[in-house]
Amino acid sequence: MDADRYALNKELAQMLKGGVIMDVTTPEQAKIAEAAGACAVMALERIPADIRAAGGVSRMSDPAMIRGIQEAVTIPVMAKCRIGHFAEAQILEAIEIDYIDESEVLSPADDVFHIDKTAFKVPFVCGARDLGEALRRIAEGASMIRTKGEPGTGDVVQAVRHMRKMQQEIARIASMRTDELYEAAKELRVPYSLVEYVHEHHKLPVVNFAAGGIATPADAALMMQLGAEGVFVGSGIFKSGNPEKRASAIVKAVADFRNAPLLAELSANLGEAMVGINENEIALLMAERGK
């Protein structure tokens, strides 16, 4: 991937800012998401809550299913491949996906190496729990970052933890003397140039979204106020009582996330939220995959 292609890929993420990216499993759901104001959709066969329930090995979705969703909507379409599974990524590139999510939600294909994302023309988004993970993914060629959170739970605690950790570490790097940055790069196990960027700009070099466990307009507003530039909503929408209404409410909450009277209005009469599972009730922590 040449430098200009990488810049264009980071710039697509900039266009998604202030928006909501929704998990969808059918063309019908994709249309509901688009009509509700989603800025992009994530095409996958099973939403994380169902992946969790089904167990077993979870893989890239059927390209025919992804194509069906690409044909149903005009907004960008993303899809997930397994961590380290560069052949799945090649297939997604071949069907001209707009963004690949190298995702811990699927079963990892490689427990050591992530995909060399610089070998691709299509952009990648990757999950991270802290600044070190985020910068390592960026060094590998990711052009967008999201918190890992804990997918499929409807529990926002991990997304909050990951976003706070990242912001704290960014603030720490920003406050350092320049001669301390070399040691910081060593500690974080990341290239010096990326630490230098964070020091100068007080932010990641790519757009940073929140993901994992976001189920309500209030969850989305919380993540935006903690510094997210947009949100992914996975199971939270289509596992709820009234997907259309909830999707639209979350879109509006992200657009004006400090407007408490508006949030109160958006949170009213939304129907049943996703039931949810607490972090300490689950056996499998997806966020532990791929460091």
Binding site: A35, G37, T74
Partner: peptide, 14 residues
């Protein structure tokens, strides 16, 4: 710039 479908909807909703 952004997603025009999202922006159009929010122009009306807001």
């Amino acid at each position: 710039g952004g997603e025009s479908t999202t922006q159009r909807k929010l122009l009306h909703d807001t």
